[in-house]
């Protein structure tokens, strides 16, 4: 068991529960539960020493944020997935290669176990960004 960080490429995208929650409303707990998630493969989970549903902190060049870890057996080692939404975007730089399109599909991050760390609500997240500006 190794409790050090894991470096992965994290990609974002749609999930069914994210879509449903978004249609219901973004200020619902459904939405937060759907998007404040990081899907990891089993080797990453093992290496972090965490169980399904425990909190991890995901760190990119521009910031870090706590989300809930979720085992996805279909993922290959080295790749993680965070549903598209404010938690992923908090970590993402705005460079578009002059195309208008940010790099939603390829963000290098390191992940640390953070059992018990608080996951911000959508409102708290908004407030935090606002206060930092």
């Amino acid at each position: 068991m190794n409790n050090g960080s894991v470096k992965v490429l994290v990609t974002s995208g749609r999930t069914l529960s994210q879509g449903r929650a978004m249609e219901k409303g973004k200020m619902t707990s459904d939405y937060e539960n759907a998007v404040a998630v990081c899907e990891l493969d089993s080797t990453a989970m093992e290496s972090l020493g965490i169980k399904n549903g425990e909190t991890v902190v995901v760190k990119s060049d521009i910031g870090e944020i706590a989300v809930k870890a979720k085992l996805n057996k279909q993922l290959v080692p080295g790749i993680a997935f965070i549903p598209c939404g404010p938690y992923f975007n908090f970590l993402l730089d705005s460079y578009t290669q002059h195309t208008g399109m940010p790099g939603f599909k390829s963000l290098t991050v390191s992940i640390d176990a953070a059992p018990g760390a608080k996951i911000l609500t959508v409102e708290e997240l908004t407030k935090m960004i606002k206060e930092a500006t």
């Binding site: 521009i62 910031g63 975007n89 908090f90 993402l92 730089d93 705005s94 960004i129 930092a132 500006t133």
Partner: peptide, 12 residues
């Protein structure tokens, strides 16, 4: 919800 952070920061 859907823009990267620097864009959101300016928007605020």
């Amino acid at each position: 919800a859907h823009f990267p952070r620097a864009a959101v920061s300016h928007l605020m």
